[in-house]
């Protein structure tokens, strides 16, 4: 059984648990990112966490990565919220500057180390096969915190995403809510650094949510579906990269393979969604013809 066999190896089992949890977490948060059209803001966050990762590693080795990323993530989430609430600055230009500046800081710091290309690759693209139990625990804690936060705030978050003026009029503290979502995105990035690196997280956030959206118009379906697609992508990605590397001698980086599998799942979902809409339309047409007759 190629789908389960590899995971008898302890490091593969840990990688599987990490990616499945991460996929589910990113899927959930991703739905909100999609609804709020925050893909670029989220992408900025993935880059601004990077210098935190580098500095954390410098100060505390592998164990320092999480805390460095956490500090940078929360800090830049606050910064981004302030930035996007000041309408005078052209928003995407400001984001692009912030993104590249902090990313460059990270690269400069890491390039002062000897053997930095290996570190750099690990920070950017992750090394899911070396995930240890402590990192698994960190991912689990982040997942519980973020999911609980979003569950409690689901109504104001939904109202704010759908109708920001209406939310303000209803007394919702929009600025605070936006900060919460930005911090949630930052936390997903932090949790994902070890597994897929800072660059590929954005795919984990966007792709499962987009796939779920093309299959359903109902949030009650979209959220669990995005979780499922995220988790399935993690699992299948690992299987594919393991099979290719071990059975066929083609080395595939696991993080990137997960992303490609996710995109393939999105393709399937999109096709299925197109068929569903066509069937729905012709049904509606038939119904209206019947009603007219």
């Amino acid at each position: 059984m190629m789908f389960f066999e590899p995971f008898q190896l302890p490091f593969m089992a840990r990688a599987l648990v990490e990616l499945v949890i991460l996929g589910a977490l990113a899927g959930t948060v991703g739905v909100l990112v999609l609804l709020r059209r925050l893909a670029f803001v989220s992408d900025t966050l993935t880059h601004t966490v990077f210098p935190g990762v580098v500095i954390g590693h410098l100060m505390g080795g592998d164990g320092g990565i999480f805390w460095g990323a956490l500090a940078a993530g929360v800090l830049t989430a606050v910064l981004l919220t302030l930035l996007t609430h000041r309408r005078r600055v052209s928003e995407d230009a400001a984001l692009a500057m912030l993104l590249t500046t902090l990313f460059a800081v990270g690269v400069v710091v890491v390039s002062r180390q000897t053997g930095f290309t290996s570190d750099l690759t690990a920070f950017l693209f992750g090394r899911v096969l070396t995930v240890n139990e402590e990192q698994l625990a960190q991912t689990a804690v982040v997942t519980v915190v973020v999911v609980a936060l979003l569950a409690v705030l689901r109504r104001p978050l939904l109202l704010r995403a759908f109708d920001p003026e209406g939310a303000r009029a209803a007394g919702v503290r929009v600025g605070l809510l936006d900060l919460v979502l930005n911090v949630a995105v930052a936390l997903v990035v932090v949790a994902a650094v070890k597994a897929v690196g800072t660059i590929l997280v954005i795919a984990l956030l966007i792709v499962p949510a987009a796939a779920a959206r093309s299959l359903s118009d109902r949030l009650a379906v979209i959220v669990p579906l995005a979780c499922l697609v995220g988790a399935a992508g993690g699992w299948l990605g690992l299987v594919v990269s393991y099979e290719a590397s071990v059975e066929h001698g083609v080395r595939l980086a696991s993080g990137a393979t997960v992303v490609l599998v996710l995109v393939a799942l999105y393709g399937l979902a999109h096709a299925a969604g197109a068929v569903r809409r066509k069937v729905g339309l012709s049904r509606a047409r038939r119904r209206s013809v019947l009603e007219a007759a």
Binding site: L35, A161, F162, G166, A170, S216, L219
Partner: peptide
């Protein structure tokens, strides 16, 4: 394109009374 039903939109008017949980 927002994925909410008509019913859900109207329910938003009740959010203040329903609260968070």
């Amino acid at each position: 394109d927002f994925p909410v039903s008509v019913e859900q939109v109207v329910m938003m008017g009740r959010y203040r009374r329903i609260g968070w949980l």
